Amino acid sequence: MERNITLIALFAALIAALGLIPKLTLAFGVPITAQSMGIMLCGTVLGARRGALAVLLFLALVALGLPLLAGGRGGLGAFAGPAVGFLIGWPVAAFVIGFIVERWRTGPLALVASVASVIGGIGAMYLFGVVGMAILLDKTLIEALMLVTVFLPGDVIKAVLAGMITAALARSRPSSVLSRS
């Protein structure tokens, strides 16, 4: 129990630390950040439940006003912009990623974690992000989907990196990859 709480807090801190990498805000208000890779790592390393809890802890800290989002954003106002759908989708994405890694036991972990990160960290997250953007920017779902295509190459790279990092962690400290224990 104590170990789980520590790891959940540690991964919430990892997401925050990845926010220190400078963001690039696009014209329609949604930034490109490294924090989505933190979401992917929450799922691949911690598993579904713990990964989602780490993301929820991070989002609770942001809601309380801590400037943990890329660019030093925080507070309830962060949940009122065009990126709100992505923020809401983050815990779902971590859960989906963790669920896939926990259940898919065959194949190399790097591949499993990468594919899970694409399905959850791109598929599930974009589902929420596109809907949020469509509502807040008064666009159709297709128009909002076209806006987020700029994120795809970077997110695929992040998914592959999350898979490689998870596999390397499993090789060096197998017990630390809770999604596989």
Rank of each mutant, 00 (worst) to 15 (best):
M125D: 12
V131P: 02
V131E: 05
A116D: 10
T149C: 11
L109T: 11
K139R: 14
L136R: 15
F128C: 15
R73I: 04
A144E: 10
G129P: 03
F58T: 04
G123K: 00
I100S: 08
L69I: 13
G129A: 06
L111C: 09
G77W: 00
L68G: 09
A78Q: 02
I142D: 10
G74H: 10
L136A: 11
M146I: 14
L66R: 05
P153A: 06
A80T: 12
A113P: 11
G98S: 02
M133N: 07
V115I: 15
T149F: 14
L64A: 15
F99Y: 14
G71F: 09
V62D: 01
V118T: 07
W104P: 06
V148I: 15
L145I: 03
G74E: 09
D138A: 13
M146C: 12
P82I: 08
L87M: 09
G98I: 03
F128W: 14
A110L: 12
G72E: 02
M133Q: 13
F99L: 15
E143L: 04
V130T: 14
V101A: 00
A83Q: 13
M146G: 13
L111A: 14
I119S: 00
V96E: 04
F58D: 00
G129V: 05
A124D: 01
I135S: 07
S114Y: 03
G132Q: 12
L127F: 15
I88W: 12
A116W: 10
S117L: 03
L127Y: 05
A60W: 04
E143V: 03
L141Q: 05
A54F: 01
L145S: 15
V101Y: 01
F79W: 09
R105C: 06
V112W: 05
V84Q: 02
G123F: 00
V118E: 04
V115G: 11
F95M: 04
I100H: 04
A94L: 06
V131Y: 08
L127R: 05
L136G: 10
T149P: 06
G123M: 01
I97Q: 03
A134V: 09
L76Q: 06
R105Q: 14
I142H: 07
A93L: 02
T140P: 06
L69R: 06
G75M: 08
E143G: 10
L137F: 03
L56K: 02
S117I: 01
P67W: 08
I100C: 07
L57H: 13
R105H: 11
R73V: 10
P82A: 15
P91M: 06
L66V: 10
P108W: 03
A63L: 14
W90H: 07
G71S: 09
L147H: 11
T149S: 13
L87R: 07
G107P: 01
W90V: 09
G98R: 01
P82V: 12
A60Q: 02
A94V: 05
A94M: 00
M125R: 11
I122M: 11
L61C: 13
V62C: 05
G72A: 03
I119P: 03
R103A: 00
S114A: 15
A113I: 11
A113E: 10
F99W: 14
G121T: 09
G77C: 03
G129R: 08
A78D: 05
G72I: 04
A63R: 07
A60E: 02
V101D: 00
T149D: 05
